[in-house]
Design a protein around this nucleic acid. Structure first.
Lengths: 142, 142
DNA sequence: TTCGGTGCAAACTCTTTGCACGACG
DNA sequence: CGTCGTGCAAAGAGTTTGCACCGAA
């Protein structure tokens, strides 16, 4: 598996952009978090680590990471966007507990196949998808 | 099928709230739109119709409608929330064209069944789910 | 008279943008 | 140079909230 940094650098090159110190810091931080993250979380973690990068740069770089395909946006029921990295992490979907907020990942090949056939029937070319199931987790069920 | 207005009124009653003129206007407007809507759209449509209701009330009422189960939030890839009514409208999921913005609804019993079994395996009690598939629609495919 | 409900405007949160300066081929 | 990249602060969009008044039980 290619390291994400190489993929990112190659992507940047195609856009005539370069892998700056700030972009590298953000990339590393994003890939150090296993799970779902918010833009501001990246900003604050870097700040705590004395690696000062502005919020603007965090947002700009997250946009690049999404476009490069290394990161995707996910909607977890809250009113702002979460991100998760997709590289070195097999595709999965989410069970979101609306009580404790826990997010459980799952993946199911049969569901993916059915989705693909829905697309085929409709002449739709799928690029990505997200599935969220909201409810109560094992510990929060009454 | 119970009319949505009765369901809403019953829900409000359980919270010691009442079905005011403004809440009724918003309810009617929401149910008159088949498909996905934004909060501001409701506000603007009512305004055009000379039925003046403030934005604040629209947001407050949409919250109530979501809690009553008559309306759900959906994430269609844009960075703000969409709503759709769920009553008198069979459950469905979405194909979202990232070029023209068109949203195609679909439903597939087999997918629903598989999702239910994923939940069962994990001891997760499902309340709702949303599936979005992003890509190019028939007309926007290259 | 007691709350719930509303409108208004201000506040807030998340995100984007304009601008000037700094870095680097 | 030219232009990419950044930080800063301001602007934006969408949404929520504090407050005063209004209206129904």
């Amino acid at each position: 598996m290619k390291k994400e940094i190489e993929i990112f650098e190659r992507y940047l090159k195609t856009k005539n952009l370069s892998l700056t110190k700030e972009r590298k810091l953000i990339l590393d931080e994003v890939f150090s978090i296993d799970g779902h993250l918010e833009a501001d979380e990246i900003f604050l973690r870097l700040k705590k680590d004395k690696k000062d990068v502005s919020r603007a740069t965090v947002y700009r770089t997250l946009g690049l990471l999404v476009n490069s395909g290394l990161v995707r946006k996910v909607y977890l029921g809250e009113d702002h966007i979460h991100y998760e990295h997709t590289h070195g992490h097999t595709h999965h979907d989410h069970l979101v507990c609306i009580k404790c907020g826990k997010v459980i990942e799952f993946s199911d090949k049969k569901i993916e196949k059915l989705q693909a056939s829905v697309c085929r029937e409709r002449g739709f070319q799928e690029l990505s998808h997200t599935v969220q199931i909201f409810g109560y987790c094992k510990d929060c069920k009454e």
